[in-house]
């Protein structure tokens, strides 16, 4: 009987001591959790795509709570998420337009041709390394769909040899832009639908030889523009989205229809 009592007592004393120790250490070494971090995390989309430049949504939430990242740092969430996070953080998110990926090439199989018969890994990066020029054009879309493979939202497809972006599905993570070995894809504000859809930096006659839809560097669009929005370096026109007013005069004048006016 004594043994049972003694054991119970010892266990009880140890239990009280350990309990007191736990309470003490729990108070002493408590990790301060920023409530805002949890709140911010709950507003982020949670696909952990890494497009913001942080290791995932948790890391971005921590950075926003600490004030290291702006409230509109998440490109996927866009304006809605930025506003919600702004409410939590007590700052206003600036006006932010959703961005979408844009492929600067319209060299479909109808307007340009393939030079060599490429047999190998169906991946643009591998094809570029194989050496032979698959497409006649040195700058255009190869159409093996490396961008399609990396897109987390299946927003890109290859249609008639050229990558086409589904603007509704695009979450502007920018992975396709990083992957394209020819650097054809850029992220542009959604409303800026007037773009030069060609990347060929060669001179006019050479472009004519390889593609009927390529920018020949005639410069008509630059002359047409009343807002000085077209930067023209002699071979390829580029539209400055900040100055463009979407009047569409350049596109109407372009002899090869290299400027798009539709939201493709």
């Amino acid at each position: 009987m004594n043994i049972i009592l003694a054991t119970t007592l010892v266990i009880a004393v140890i239990g009280i001591c350990v309990g007191a120790g736990l309470v003490f250490t729990g108070k002493k070494f408590a990790v301060e959790v920023d409530e805002r971090e949890v709140a911010v995390r709950s507003k982020l989309p949670g696909n952990n795509c890494g497009a913001c430049g942080y290791a995932g949504c948790d890391a971005l939430a921590a950075a926003i709570a600490k004030g290291e990242a702006p409230v509109n740092a998440c490109p996927v969430g866009g304006a809605a998420v930025a506003e919600a996070i702004g409410d939590i953080m007590g700052t206003r998110a600036g006006a932010m337009e959703r961005k979408v990926a844009f492929v600067a090439c319209k060299g479909t199989c109808d307007v340009t041709h393939n030079q060599g018969n490429y047999i190998g890994i169906k991946d643009c990066r591998a094809a570029v390394m194989a050496g032979i020029n698959i497409t006649d054009c040195n700058y255009g879309c190869l159409g093996f769909g490396s961008c399609v493979d990396v897109c987390p939202e299946q927003a890109i497809s290859i249609r008639n040899g050229v990558a086409v972006v589904n603007r509704n599905r695009c979450v502007s993570c920018g992975l396709c832009a990083k992957t394209c070995p020819r650097g054809l894809i850029t992220l542009i504000p959604e409303s800026r639908i007037i773009r030069v859809q060609c990347s060929n930096k060669d001179k006019g006659p050479q472009v004519k030889k390889v593609c009927t839809a390529g920018c020949i560097g005639c410069g008509l669009c630059a002359k047409q523009c009343e807002f000085d929005a077209i930067e023209f370096d002699g071979t390829l026109a580029r539209i400055n989205p900040d100055k463009c007013t979407l009047c569409g005069k350049c596109a109407a004048k372009c002899p090869v229809k290299a400027i798009t006016t539709t939201a493709v």
């Binding site: 990066r125 591998a126 390394m129 194989a130």
Partner: peptide
């Protein structure tokens, strides 16, 4: 399998 081509790409990356 196109092994060498895969290695070439991986090395370049």
């Amino acid at each position: 399998r196109p092994l060498m081509q895969v290695f070439k790409q991986a090395k370049a990356e």
